[in-house]
Design a protein around this nucleic acid. Structure first.
Lengths: 211, 211
DNA sequence: AACTAATAACTGAATGCTCATTCACTTCGC
DNA sequence: GCGAAGTGAATGAGCATTCAGTTATTAGTT
């Protein structure tokens, strides 16, 4: 059990550091956070961080990877648990997105604020996990299009990006404004209805095929 | 004309610095840009920047104010020139948003990437210009709701944020991907159609009033 | 119009501060 | 008592900001 303990000890400390980094970055942003801030937030010495991460950039990227993976797993699991077709799942997706964020405010602030920056400026980092997130949404939309419950004249990639953007922006407000859960459910509902109405088929969508 | 020349000379240099800052920030982000980078981009000495701006933060904020004001003025002007009701204007708004961004890629990258960061971390800066931008959209939506061409069961503030988010996220991709203008028009069109279909009234929106 | 002086605009090397990162040393687990 | 894990003071690089010195502009005087 020695090995297992070591393992556990190791990754427990790693996790503590990640948690400290999350709190610190969410509060002050990556560039305004000192490595020593993360260290004291995590209750370790400055040097310890370098036993688990190559440098400050690596800490940021690792935090992304780790937390995004967690989010994606939860989303996937909870979506699969939703019975019914594409529309209920889309609604669930929006609700989940918002409620996850409210339950984990630090995480929400971190991701909404740092995602763009980091994607662009942390050299040679492609952010594959964010791609996976979008992919969940995209495949859901494509399925809806194939089944005929969603209009097919829109590009699924484009639409999923637009939806993500809408959610993300509204989220940013929610996270910063400390809104109560009831409001969150309501706002999520409104957004979901708007998006779904925008995506369900209507007569005028195919003016060429008069058949 | 001596006085006028001095004036012109002054603000021309200020503008040169802002332009340099825009290019530099768009390329490398605020935190990865040295003041001396801005200086050389603008063709002035490092010290000169401090004759026009209090410090690096002030330069960032001034750039926001200045460029946002320019954008807002253009949006307002061009929207007023659109005849017809709310729907054509909404469509025009989306097209304008995208085409402005493509014509001014640096500006688009700067705003999409730095807006959130700055809003949150440049102390005591409330970003009133961004509020004015959202307000244009919100008042357009409210008018549509009053006139009955847009559904009234959604909060206009929430919706305008969601729309901004959707546009902004798609824009980010467009700006980074260097897409040709034809694609831009098409993507703008798709987004506009989706949003408008999501916002126009349908029977099921008021299930309580069976009347 | 030429000269002078006063003022404003500009310059960029020097200053000093803020951290990320390292490493000689200590502590822990076995 | 050995190897791994952890520590935190010391190092040094990077960079925002300053300011003594230079150059351009304007106004005043003859």
């Amino acid at each position: 059990m020695a090995k297992a303990d070591r393992q556990r000890g190791n990754s427990e400390k790693r996790e503590r550091i990640l948690q400290g980094a999350l709190r610190a970055f969410a509060q002050n942003g990556f560039y305004n956070t000192r490595v020593s801030d993360v260290a004291s937030e995590a209750g370790v010495a400055d040097g310890t961080i370098y036993l688990y991460f190559k440098n400050k950039d690596d800490l940021l990227i690792s935090l992304f990877e780790d937390r995004m993976e967690w989010i994606i797993d939860r989303l996937r699991d909870e979506l699969e648990a939703v019975d019914g077709g594409v529309l209920p799942r889309l609604r669930a997706f929006v609700q989940l997105h918002f409620h996850l964020a409210v339950e984990h405010r630090d995480l929400a602030e971190f991701i909404t604020v740092e995602l763009r920056q980091s994607a662009k400026f942390v050299k040679e980092y492609e952010n594959p996990k964010f791609g996976a997130y979008l992919e969940i949404l995209r495949s859901l939309i494509e399925r809806g299009q194939r089944e005929g419950v969603l209009r097919s004249d829109l590009d699924s990639r484009l639409v999923s990006r637009a939806i993500f953007g809408a959610l993300d922006e509204v989220l940013l407000q929610l996270a910063l404004a400390h809104k109560p859960p009831a409001d969150v459910t309501d706002e999520a509902h409104q957004i979901a209805e708007m998006l779904i109405d925008g995506l369900t088929p209507r007569e005028h969508h195919k003016p060429t095929s008069t058949e």
